[in-house]
Design a protein around this nucleic acid. Structure first.
Length: 402
RNA sequence: GCAGGGUUAGUGAAGCGGUCAAACACGUCAGACUGUAAAUCUGAUGGCUUAUGCCUUCGUAGGUUCGAAUCCUACACCCUGCA
């Protein structure tokens, strides 16, 4: 409405897929979709300046309401002029609601979703009832801060107020994250709760917008849960799709093998004209599958985290910079890569920085990885535009996973 | 020259008669990381190996003992006082 937030589909790929290109317009700028949204949890993309994020091709940054609420405090971010201004990011921003942190970290589930293996692991803390750090009720979630153990409470309304203060262009509804371990009956209860919370988020957001009409429009995306169950996912899509959200996030427990199915079920139910964000993915095969099934944007910590921990992307898969083979390798991380790191530094040098625990290693590795994933998504966008998506997918994945 | 202390695997450093192929740290090698409690975590690290298995190690050489990295003797080198 009135140009403050808008999503325009530019081209549908068709051919039995739900893939499309489009443009999300926000008060802070446009996002060409499909797009990879860089994660900057604590109002910073770890080890990267905004200029470096931009240089790597980043269009938008996603921060986290939970972290910023705890530190430095959402009021402070508001006082600073909002998230984008505070962190000097000249572009669109997102905030996650904090639901994921409150429940995945707080409750003691180390791995809510082991996407790689089919196995499900639980943190020891989860097994000890006395050490649970989060408790869900129909009103909200009470949890303990990971910083100092202090007790806090998030409700849908509170999450909206926090995110409203932080001032991102796109915010997410407060949802309950379940685990694949939770029984079906619990998933049903939880989904009902998430849906009620969604309505409350919309109501609260309405109030907040009315109370401060001078502020730029903040879009609100509803989050689709439903774990691995088709009936629940479709039900969630129908229910949420009928509510006046600006777009949708697809979240929750997703087994890697089922990712494509789940996204398709959901997107077959949701209104096609609304933007869809998939929360927390960035592995190339997941990206192709998500986009093919109608996802417009997604975010992930992986490129920076993995980079800080020594892994870099190549067209033949991830490699570890610390490996002895690169000690005397004076080529770039990746041949023909256009990123700042590959244009200017060698594997031998980056390995030296990494082994010496020099901070620049984090930066150079993060720049390369972000660039690599962003470029992949950019290339996919181009392939949808010119109709070569299927060929790109086949050749790209064939090379990467061999 | 006299007195005292020391010499342990890549490095530092525990061990001071058996449960020692030898703690621990670092280093090295390899792996993991998907809405960031992550500049983190996991495994390996004398040799051969499937091994609760065998072989070779704790400055060097000898000795005591059923048994020694651990006790004794000699030698080598290093350190600290006194000359």
């Amino acid at each position: 409405m009135d140009g403050k937030f808008d999503f325009k589909i530019v081209k549908d790929l068709g051919g039995g897929t739900l893939a499309r290109t489009g443009v999300i317009s926000t008060p802070h700028g446009d996002i060409k979709t499909p797009a990879f949204i860089v994660v900057g949890t604590q109002a910073t993309v770890k080890a990267m300046t905004p200029e470096q994020v931009r240089g790597a091709g980043g269009q938008a940054v996603l921060a986290n309401a939970y972290h910023l609420y705890l530190r430095p405090g959402h009021e402070l971010v508001e006082k600073a002029g909002g998230l984008a201004k505070f962190m000097n990011w000249n572009g669109p921003t997102f905030t996650d609601s904090g639901g994921f942190q409150v429940l995945s970290l707080g409750s003691g589930y180390k791995k809510v979703l082991p996407m790689q293996s089919g196995e499900i692991s639980i943190d020891e803390a989860a097994a000890k009832p006395g050490e649970r750090h989060a408790f869900v009720d129909d009103e909200g979630v009470t949890f303990k801060s990971h910083l100092d153990g202090s007790t806090h409470r998030f409700t849908p309304e509170h999450s909206m107020r926090v995110q409203h203060a932080i001032g991102a262009d796109i915010m997410f509804a407060f949802d309950e994250l379940t685990s694949l371990l939770d029984p079906y009956e619990y998933q049903v209860d939880s989904l009902e709760r998430t849906h009620e919370w969604a309505r409350r988020c919309l109501r609260e957001m309405e109030k907040l917008r009315k109370a401060s009409p001078e502020r730029p429009y903040q879009a609100l995306f509803g989050v689709i849960q439903g774990a691995q169950y088709e009936d629940l996912r479709r039900q969630a899509g129908q229910f949420m799709g009928a509510l006046p959200f600006d777009g949708y996030g697809i979240g929750g427990a997703i087994e890697k093998a089922k990712l494509g199915d789940i996204v398709r079920w959901v997107n077959e139910e949701l209104p096609a004209e609304k933007p869809k964000h998939m929360l927390g993915i960035s592995e190339p095969d997941d990206i192709f599958v998500a986009i093919e099934n109608g996802v417009d944007t997604f975010d992930c910590v992986s490129p920076t985290r993995v980079g800080r921990n020594g892994a870099f992307y190549t067209y033949e898969g991830r490699r570890n910079i610390s490996t002895a083979a690169y000690k005397h390798d004076f080529g770039p991380l990746l041949e023909d890569c256009g990123c700042y790191t590959c244009q200017n530094y060698t594997r031998a040098y980056v390995q030296h920085l990494y082994k010496a625990k020099e901070l620049l290693a984090n930066t150079l590795m993060s720049i390369h990885n972000e660039h690599f994933i962003i470029k992949l998504v950019d290339d996919i966008r181009g392939s949808i535009a010119d109709g070569s998506f299927a060929e790109l997918k086949k050749s790209w994945l064939g090379r990467y996973y061999t």
